[in-house]
Structure formats: structure tokens, C-alpha cells
């Protein structure tokens, strides 16, 4: 009985259970968010008047564009954080690449026991909470944190350096959070690099720098692209890092959504900003998928 049931309906079950769940709890929320972003804000519970309604008077759809217009009018408050998100995410990606490439190279070229140890060292932060690591970073960067204390004690500085709430603290946080994501694809592409290719280049007269420029770098380019996308996409929407380490100058969209929602209780505007955030990441995401397809063929 069970067996016949499985053979007949197992196929449908395997597909439609996850499709159902993800439609209900991923697609539908996005649609509802779009709905809210076109809704009118009001002082009530919930604090908006839905654009799309099914009520006693039947189905009605009355979108309002106020929220997007508001974002446009107060562009200094909303669009600037958008640009800022892109800027901070971009330079964070560059910094990650700067440190991750040597790290991945070293790991890929090292011998067995050391290689395993280094890989575990890269993976460990990946599994531990980013929130806690950001907290640890605060302890280091604070005006009365470990670094300032040490420098004061050593007599190198007289007054504490302002490191928190600067671009520096944001980049430190991003490095701490996203370095492993950059290292892993780079490592994967570098470790596959055949040593014979490097020897062939050397044999044909290439010096170290030329070997890097003509062989290593071009062949690890897929890893570089994958790593950059893996860092840039989540970094744009980051909340914890700007919230804990950034000041007003380091405002990012993830934090603006939070503030609009929890502080200002302006749900429609929060939803509209979320839509803008999706619009920002959609380009790199589509590119990543396109790259993926290319890689498979």
C-alpha cells in the first residue's frame, strides 16, 4: 500500500512540498512587501492601508507611489545610504580580495598538514557568529579599546585615535566577516592550477612576476569573480556591521530599513527601500547565475 503510494505520488511529493513551502514563505512575502511598498502609511495597526485588498467590497487595487516619491524627495536620507552601501561594499570587496588572494595562494601551495590546518583556520570563522566577531572587533577598536590602550601605554599617541564609526571600522568588520567567503573560491581555483603549467612558463623564460601575470592570474580569474560576487552581494545589504561599527557617515540600506521599520514605524517606506536594495543586488546576482551557466557548459 505504502509502496504503491510512494511510486505513484513520490515524484509529485518531492517537488511540490518544497515548491509549496517556498511559494508560501518566500514568494508570497515578497509580493506582500511589494504590496506594502505601494500602500498608504497611516497611524494605526497595522500602520498602512493595503494597496491590494480583498474585502466585503470585493477585490480592489489602489497603488500609491508616495513612498517612492518620499524616497526621491528626501534623497539625502535614502539614496545617499544606497550609494554608500554600494561604495562600502565595493571597497570591502577590494580589501577582501587584497588579503584573500595571498591567503588562498599560500594555502593552495602549502603541503599537506599545514594546508589542512590553514583551511580549518579559514573555515572556523565561517561557522562562528558574525555578531560575536563584530563585538570582539569593537573591543579592539574602541577609544578605550585594546589598540588605543596599547598605543597610549607605549607613548606613541597622546589621545585615543577615533577608529570606531569610520570607514576603517566598516572595512575591518567586512574583512572579518567576508574574508572566508572570498578565500574559498580563490583557493578552489588556485589549488586546481597544474604545477606543470608554472614550470612550463618558467622553462619558456618567464620570470616570477610574468608567471603570475600571464598564467596564475588569468587562470584564477573565475575564482576572483566568484569570490567578489560572494562578498559584494551580502555586503551591500549588511545590517550588523553598519549598526555596530558605523556612524552616520557609514549609513547603509540594511540599517535604514531597520530604522524605518522599528524606529519610525514607517512600514511602507521600509518596504520601498527593501525593493530598492533588491534592485541593487539583482544585477550582480544575474551576472553570477550567468557565469555559473557558462562554467557548467
Amino acid at each position: 500500500m505504502m509502496r504503491i503510494f510512494f511510486q505513484k505520488y513520490g515524484f509529485l511529493l518531492v517537488i511540490w512540498l518544497p515548491v509549496g513551502w517556498l511559494s508560501l514563505f518566500f514568494m508570497l512575502p515578497l509580493i506582500e512587501m511589494i504590496n506594502v511598498s505601494f500602500s498608504e502609511a497611516r497611524r494605526a495597526v497595522p500602520p498602512y492601508n493595503p494597496a491590494f485588498q480583498i474585502g466585503e467590497k470585493g477585490i480592489s487595487f489602489q497603488p500609491v507611489f508616495d513612498n517612492y516619491l518620499l524616497i526621491y524627495d528626501y534623497w539625502g536620507d535614502y539614496l545617499w545610504p544606497a550609494v554608500n552601501s554600494i561604495r562600502l561594499a565595493f571597497f570591502s570587496t577590494v580589501w577582501c580580495l587584497f588579503f584573500a588572494y595571498p591567503m588562498a595562494w599560500w594555502i593552495a601551495r602549502s603541503k599537506k598538514p599545514l594546508q589542512h590546518i590553514l583551511l580549518v583556520l579559514v573555515l572556523m570563522p565561517f561557522w562562528t557568529s558574525s555578531l560575536l566577531r563584530m563585538y570582539a572587533l569593537i573591543g579592539l577598536l574602541n577609544p578605550n579599546g585594546v589598540i588605543n590602550d596599547f598605543l597610549l601605554w607605549a607613548g606613541i599617541i597622546v589621545t585615543p585615535i577615533q577608529m570606531m564609526q569610520t570607514d576603517f571600522s566598516i572595512y575591518s568588520g567586512m574583512l572579518l566577516t567576508y574574508l572566508p567567503l572570498m578565500i574559498l573560491p580563490l583557493y578552489a581555483s588556485l589549488v586546481r592550477l597544474d604545477n606543470a603549467l608554472l614550470e612550463a612558463a618558467a622553462d619558456l623564460g618567464a620570470k616570477n612576476w610574468e608567471i603570475f601575470r600571464t598564467i596564475i592570474l588569468p587562470l584564477s580569474l573565475p575564482g576572483v569573480i566568484a569570490g567578489c560576487l560572494l562578498v559584494f552581494i551580502p555586503a551591500v545589504g549588511e545590517f550588523v556591521i553598519p549598526a555596530l561599527l558605523g556612524g552616520p557617515e557609514q549609513l547603509m540600506l540594511g540599517k535604514v530599513i531597520w530604522t524605518e521599520f522599528f524606529r519610525n514605524r514607517d512600514w511602507p517606506v521600509a518596504a520601498a527601500i527593501a525593493i530598492i536594495l533588491i534592485a541593487i543586488i539583482i544585477l550582480p546576482v544575474v551576472y553570477a547565475r550567468y557565469q555559473d551557466k557558462e562554467g557548467l557548459s
Binding site: I15, S23, M33, P234, G237, I257, W258, L277, A288
Partner: peptide, 30 residues
């Protein structure tokens, strides 16, 4: 539905947490 499933199964991977959280909350309230 293969394309649809591949879309909804991979989009949450790249969706900013704030967006996912907000959209879910809005759905729960609705």
C-alpha cells in the same frame, strides 16, 4: 515548475537578511 523552484530555492541565498525578515513579517501580519 523546475525553473520556478530553482528561482525560489536560490533567491533566499542572496537576499539581504533585512529584506527577508521584513517581507516575512509583513506576510505574517497580513
Amino acid at each position: 515548475g523546475r525553473l520556478f523552484l530553482s528561482l525560489v530555492a536560490s533567491a533566499p541565498l542572496v537576499m539581504p537578511e533585512a529584506v527577508t525578515g521584513l517581507s516575512m513579517l509583513l506576510l505574517f501580519i497580513a
